[in-house]
Design a protein around this nucleic acid. Structure first.
Lengths: 132, 132, 132, 132
DNA sequence: GTGGTCTAGACCACA
DNA sequence: GTGGTCTAGACCACC
């Protein structure tokens, strides 16, 4: 079964980010297993009707962050998971996102409980290998 | 003690965003009370060693979202708190922040439980008008 | 025929306001439909012979009030119509315009009846998707 | 009975505008009659705790638009009403305000009927010599 | 002194 | 090519 990636046109997230996120999730959820190949840059670009540069950029970032490996002439494969950022660096980055969420919660006058509930729902939806 | 704003150089958040967030927090936490003035555009720009336009952009956004009011020739003042956005619009905006947090969590391979815990800590710290 | 925007030099309204108003009308009248793109910041700036920042400021306001959406690197698009502001906030904003009209009417010594009549005419002209 | 002017601190309208508007209304409503004197610049500035320049500027505009006359060494008096703008010019100016109101009505998705009703209320309230 | 608007031009991220 | 951010500096209205 081929791993499929979908681009949401209207999304605020840039296309290359959407690709990165979906591959990341595929690996995290186990839908993509170590050693498995992902679509070639050109093929995925054709499928999604986007610029190959955009796919290449996404894959480059995935290689950089340790999710993919490239084998010259053969394509991209799911890498053995390794951490590229130190724990401290990862927490610093995630804390910026947490801060922003807390700020928005205050700014929009929403109950923290409501935020936590929505966050948990989102985590559940994204962690199970979607049947969709 | 005067209300102070600090810009973090290494942050991914743009300067004007950092100003918006900190004033928002100041108002939400009660550190800034209704009718109180905030530093003038030029003064804050001098303090932070940034361009006045950058401060003006941040303040304009705060006026639009109902946190500040302006009196031409006199300055910006903390506005009476009011609900500007519909519930649907507020959820739409908060969901963008939640999505970003979920994506980062997966991308950085951090346990959702850890995120939720950190978020709860942050809420506690920010919702009680800290002694700080 | 492409959607065109015109700037009136002698107007008291600032340029960016004129752009905001005309795009708003275009969307409200249906001349611009959902998903359609508006001229790029740079192109419109060239056409109107104004600074790109001025266009950007207008577009940013239109995004904030829910009329446009942005896709970085691709442009601005007409957003699906949604209610962004609470009823109270909308009345607060419209009352500012009403106040200004009443003040001008008194200052210019014009009969209120004449104002009401002109206003009604204007509503009729603008609310039916004109053949123009 | 002295003619009193009140300044609303939180208003978006500049102070000098508020003075101009209130004197204009006083004349239009008949509360101030031809030949009657208005408070001196210095006295009004003291009363309102504002800068005398601000009062002077307002009075200058009222003289310019024909509502007041000045008699050297004696003060300012309500002038015999005369029109300083041509009818066409007055309509052009008022039309800008009408346009803005129509735009806001479209932008905020408010029923024209509601606008007309609020406008009429406002006219009524402002035309009768307020007992307040 | 204050804010509001506009220009010119730079650098970056994204497609 | 697109938008997003920031700087530098101008001119105006208002206090």
């Amino acid at each position: 079964m081929a791993f499929t990636i979908r681009i949401v046109a209207g999304s605020t997230a840039p296309i290359y980010r959407q690709i990165v996120d979906q591959v990341t999730r595929g690996v995290a959820s186990g839908e993509l297993s170590v050693g498995e190949s992902v679509p070639s840059v050109r093929q995925l670009a054709r499928e999604l009707v986007i610029n190959p540069n955009t796919v290449a950029k996404a894959y480059a970032e995935l290689v950089d962050s340790g999710f993919l490996e490239t084998q010259a002439g053969k394509g991209f494969f799911v890498a053995k998971r390794r951490q590229v950022y130190t724990k401290a660096e990862r927490l610093r980055r995630i804390d910026e996102s947490i801060d922003q969420l807390v700020n928005q919660t205050l700014a929009l006058d929403i109950e923290p409980e409501e935020i936590v509930q929505r966050l948990l729902e989102r985590f559940e939806k994204n962690l199970k290998p979607a049947s969709e």
